[in-house]
Amino acid sequence: MLFRVDVAATEPLADQIAAQVRGALMRGELSPGERLPAARELADLLDVNLHTVLRAYGRLRDEELIELRRGRGAVIRGDADAARLRLVELARHFVREAHRQGLGEDEMVAIMREAWT
């Protein structure tokens, strides 16, 4: 898959790398069982710190999108759900925009309820 990061952007590099994997999953460019480059390899390819990649992979593991196995690298989980991931991404956008408008959690939930009915 293709990875691209912008070193001048305010978004941390690890977040950008994680976003690339999520995006590829949503677009169907990555499928369950597929192997991501080893953290060391990707750090070398993008010329970024190894820990940056490890942080990105760690986040993806916490989101239950990939499995990290010693010596086997990062593998897309069999139950990685592209459809649900798309919703999560939309929710992230929503939350980011709500934060920018200074809304709190209760107000966000209220808006969600409003949209539901």
Partner: peptide, 15 residues
């Protein structure tokens, strides 16, 4: 070509 900004780094890897 891929639209690549001057501050962007990109790489591709596949098996």
């Amino acid at each position: 070509p891929l639209d690549l900004g001057p501050s962007e780094r990109a790489a591709y890897a596949t098996s």
